[in-house]
């Protein structure tokens, strides 16, 4: 058998082991090459598909790079004002308790302007899942300093490196929220390796399953990259993330009740 005919035999509908889920739309994503948002979107879509909850899932997108998340997942979406996604999700989940409601927020959206909304949604223990994508920078507006920007990290608004004496310290949001009685499941994940993506998908499934039981909020932080903002290639960004982000934002489950 020649190599070509062997390939033809393998590339056959019945041998498919991995393909795009139909919960993801065909629209090309606007994200930069290598952006973690794409992987997270896919992971969420695959879990929605696996759990067969497409008709019952409502997403709330933020302001920031993922404002257009509604162009990629084939579910009903609400697009929130900057930082306010947890408020929208609160009402949606209270008014339609049988639905699976999630917010998808970046670090500027959730950790800066939306601090009050996330804090109180967590404190009330709303039956929602929150995806918090922490890449330590404002992506959409062009790479400015975020509350999660690391000490010394160079951004457009900390061009000499973040000076914690004048700009405060990088905020560990998950640790803060895990202290609240209203949070049920708080975990910090990543998505840079196949193993990390599989683990992330498990966390997503757990989050959606928790919403059914009405016992508090599931908060899933995903440490990700922003190669455009960090001014590194996608592969180098992952290396930088492992070296610099993971020590300050350690991966793992902080709370699971």
């Amino acid at each position: 058998m020649t190599a070509t005919t062997e390939l033809k035999n393998i590339i056959n509908e019945e041998n498919v082991v991995y393909k795009k889920t139909s919960v993801l739309l065909d629209n090309e994503m606007h994200y930069c090459p290598g952006c973690t948002h794409g992987v997270i979107h896919k992971a969420i879509a695959e879990v929605i598909d696996d759990m067969d909850i497409q008709e019952k899932t409502i997403g709330v997108s933020p302001v920031g790079c993922s404002v257009l998340a509604y162009n990629y997942l084939d579910i009903d979406w609400q697009q929130a004002a900057h930082g306010r996604a947890p408020a929208l999700a609160t009402a949606t989940s209270r008014l339609m308790p049988e639905k699976y409601v999630f917010t998808y927020q970046g670090d500027g959206d959730l950790a800066s302007i939306g601090c009050a909304e996330i804090m109180h949604a967590c404190n009330r223990g709303e039956s929602i899942v929150v995806f918090f994508v922490n890449n330590a920078i404002y992506g959409m507006t062009g790479g400015q300093m975020a509350p999660t920007t690391l000490e010394g990290q160079v951004t457009a608004t900390s061009p000499y490196g973040r000076d914690c004496q004048t700009t405060g310290f990088p905020m560990r949001i998950s640790e803060m929220l895990a202290m609240l009685p209203g949070t049920r499941f708080v975990t910090r994940e990543s998505a840079e390796t196949p193993g990390a993506v599989r683990k992330l998908k498990k966390a997503i499934r757990k989050g959606f399953e928790n919403t059914r039981e009405n016992k508090g909020i599931s908060f899933i932080e995903i440490v990700g990259t922003c190669s455009s903002g960090w001014k590194l290639s996608p592969v180098k960004s992952n290396e930088w993330m492992k070296e610099n982000m993971f020590p300050y934002y350690p991966l793992g489950t902080l709370k699971d009740e």
């Binding site: 035999n9 393998i10 590339i11 056959n12 041998n15 498919v16 082991v17 991995y18 393909k19 795009k20 993801l24 090309e28 994503m29 994200y31 090459p33 290598g34 952006c35 973690t36 948002h37 794409g38 992987v39 896919k42 998505a191 840079e192 390796t193 196949p194 993506v197 599989r198």
Partner: peptide
């Protein structure tokens, strides 16, 4: 070996994986 690792990490979901 059709392990799907590439598919899982692809941000743009452009890889279909076959295995037999």
């Amino acid at each position: 070996i059709g392990c799907s690792s590439c598919g899982l990490v692809c941000p743009d979901t452009v890889i279909t994986v076959y295995r037999t």
